[in-house]
Amino acid sequence: MIVPIAAAIIGLALNEAAYMAEIVRGGLNSIQRGQMEAAAALGLDGWTQARRVIIPQLLPIVIPPTWNQLIAMLKNTSLISVIGATELLYTAQSIYARNYQTIPLLIVASIWYLALSIALTVAQRGIEKAVKR
């Protein structure tokens, strides 16, 4: 039998892996084939092609949706309270089950989610500016 937190981590990881694979695939498809051919024509090996030519072009394309997925995953962690894993919403639910103050505790939980989302959004802006330079 699998423990709830392990099930939550596996479920979120598989979901996120599918989205990330699609983001990277889309980013690689957006790079013109001529760029890869030019790197090969220069005689660069595969790793050097990736490091010097492909990845610098890939990062500005892939970073914004990657951070959006990170923020979405943060918000999706509230879904794991359904399986009984301890996280922010589940903790708020267990506290208001004891003291019957549902609305104040849900407001506190939503403020925590909002604060974490804003912090990640600020970090995303900084990283996007650094990559676009």
Rank of each mutant, 00 (worst) to 15 (best):
A7W: 04
V122S: 05
Y96W: 08
A7D: 04
R133E: 07
G11F: 02
G46W: 10
L14E: 01
P104E: 02
M1H: 13
A21S: 11
D45R: 08
G27K: 03
A109L: 03
W112D: 08
G126R: 10
L106V: 09
R98W: 10
Y113E: 00
L74V: 07
E87C: 09
A41M: 02
K132N: 13
G84I: 09
L12I: 06
I5L: 15
T77N: 01
Q124I: 06
A85I: 14
S30H: 01
T102Q: 13
W112S: 11
V53T: 01
L70R: 09
K75E: 01
S94H: 07
T86V: 10
A40H: 04
G34M: 02
R125N: 14
A85H: 06
R25N: 14
E87Y: 12
R125A: 12
A39D: 00
S117L: 10
T86C: 13
G126E: 06
L88E: 09
A50E: 11
I107K: 13
L74H: 00
P104W: 00
W112M: 11
A72L: 11
M36C: 06
R52P: 02
A8K: 05
Q69C: 09
I63D: 10
E87L: 10
A40Y: 02
I55C: 08
I10T: 07
V82W: 11
E87R: 03
Y100N: 06
I118L: 13
S94I: 04
A85V: 05
V122R: 06
Q35C: 03
A50Y: 15
N15I: 12
A97S: 15
Y96E: 06
P65N: 14
E87I: 06
P64H: 09
S30G: 05
L28H: 02
Q93C: 03
R133C: 07
L58V: 08
K75C: 00
K132C: 06
G84M: 11
G46Q: 14
I31R: 01
G27M: 02
P4M: 08
L114K: 01
T102K: 10
T48S: 11
G43E: 01
V131P: 07
G43H: 00
L105H: 13
L42T: 11
P60Q: 07
I10K: 03
K129Y: 08
I95V: 13
L89I: 08
V82M: 10
I83M: 03
A39Y: 00
T121P: 04
L106E: 14
S81Q: 05
Q49R: 15
I107R: 12
I127K: 11
